[in-house]
Design a protein around this nucleic acid. Structure first.
Lengths: 251, 251
DNA sequence: GCACAATTGTTCGTATAGCGAACGTTTTCG
DNA sequence: CGAAAACGTTCGCTATACGAACAATTGTGC
């Protein structure tokens, strides 16, 4: 097949190499990057050395890790979207009122991508997710909402990893599809212990391609009790956010 | 001069194109990207279309903007450094105690790069900076601390933009050097209205290559009064952070 | 501790992918 | 409305990138 002359395969390979540094391992060697990307070790070597020269990676012995400069790429996107001026203060205000951290997420292929969050001092730290973190699509409340918004949720359910995170994790595609339908029907997702044991996640739609969510430790309360408390607050927050931000930038 | 065969010039050009999207303009056209990078419009076109194909940019008419997927690159760096589990909760706790947002930054060439921050509901929003935002090196308290830590601050002062942001902005290299020396001598930086009118910025070193800072509206207080209040809290926070994180990852 | 196997890193001849001059299209301006 | 300016696209040519083969390092078994 003739190459698409509008696309630079070298650059595409380089982006794949950069994308390898997803936090699963702190440092990666050339051979491991070659395995993860499927590209030749010599090719990977040139691309990695280019990332070092441009300040995005640091070499330590025979391994490499990301440097803070990659954050500037995120900063450009957040700045262009006015996140610091509009989204963050709004999330902070609503999170304080609610008493729980609130997270804004979008779907990125088969995963949930955290786009903004208001952290709260004293909130229990679970997996320590930050802006840019990827969460599973099938077993989080944010993921359920994003699936409910998708054109072909059944296809996404078929392709997304169904690896269970806890004993409660749904793995049957039909059960997952039913959960997504329930999410769409009632306008919010409620996930009880499927991703983090003992944690209830609640999420609501933000526009047509984003989700807003909060999670709370289960304790002795009922999941439905948490939902009736948290949903209205998330929905109010979502309505205010939808008025003040360009949601089209999130797709 | 013969090309360095360890470096991929195509990938380096691609990274320059990606780096163009720094938030100064929400959307960029091919010609503007070519101007900013100095590369040929045809080259830029191929690189931009590759970024679109890989999901990092979206095309709207004849312009392009970053998509949320770039945040995942930041997420990988934050995850590998354990920011969500260690840095963020610590910043949140100290920010709550202090009653002001706290920001962690490093130097990235001639600018300050925000690496983590704890925002606070109700804090005055000034320029709406977020993780990944770039601030000036010469006129912010964070920048003064980072200059104080540098091996050749005089050289950085000579090369960094000296464009004043307010009437109070220092522009004389000798005055800037003296301010950096004062910062080093007393162990903190105090910047009063040089970057944001009416705002006092205070910053302290975090290890040898990072800074921790807070800013407060001046009001009727004295800058020194704010400093004596805020410095000890920032220094306590810095000491705790230095114990729990791998500062070497921030260079 | 050594030899060999396995793994990882590097070199350089070759050709294909990327470059950019030239052309085509769109927008701006008088 | 037409010309100039600006911007986007094509395709012949060659220089940059590829990866086979080799070099160096690490791991393993005895």
């Amino acid at each position: 097949m003739p190459q698409n002359r509008d696309i630079s395969t070298t650059f595409a390979k380089g982006l794949a190499v950069l994308g390898c540094f997803d936090g699963r391992a702190a440092d990666l060697g050339l051979a491991e990057i070659a395995r993860r990307t499927g590209h030749d070790r010599a090719t990977v070597r040139r691309l990695v050395l280019t990332l070092c020269a441009e300040g995005y990676l640091r070499q330590t012995g025979r391994t490499f890790c990301l440097r803070p400069k990659v954050l500037a790429l995120a900063g450009g996107m957040l700045q262009a979207g006015g996140f610091g001026r509009t989204v963050q203060p709004l999330l902070d205000r609503h999170a304080r009122q609610l008493g729980h951290p609130i997270t804004l997420a979008v779907r990125d292929d088969l995963r949930v991508l955290l786009v903004a969050q208001s952290t709260i001092a004293g909130a229990p730290v679970s997996f320590g997710f930050t802006l840019g973190s990827a969460l599973p699509l099938l077993h989080t409340s944010l993921g359920r909402v994003l699936l409910a918004q998708a054109h072909t949720p059944a296809d996404l359910i078929a392709r997304a990893p169904r690896t269970p995170h806890t004993d409660q994790s749904l793995t049957d595609p039909a059960a997952l599809a039913a959960a997504v339908t329930l999410t769409r029907d009632r306008g919010y997702a409620l996930v009880d212990g499927e991703f983090e044991p003992g944690t209830v996640g609640i999420a609501v739609p933000l526009g047509r391609v984003a989700a807003l969510g909060a999670s709370v430790p289960r304790g002795t309360g009922s999941a439905e009790g948490f939902a009736s408390l948290i949903c209205p607050a998330l929905q109010t927050c979502a309505a205010e956010l939808a008025q003040g931000m360009d949601l089209a930038r999130l797709t």
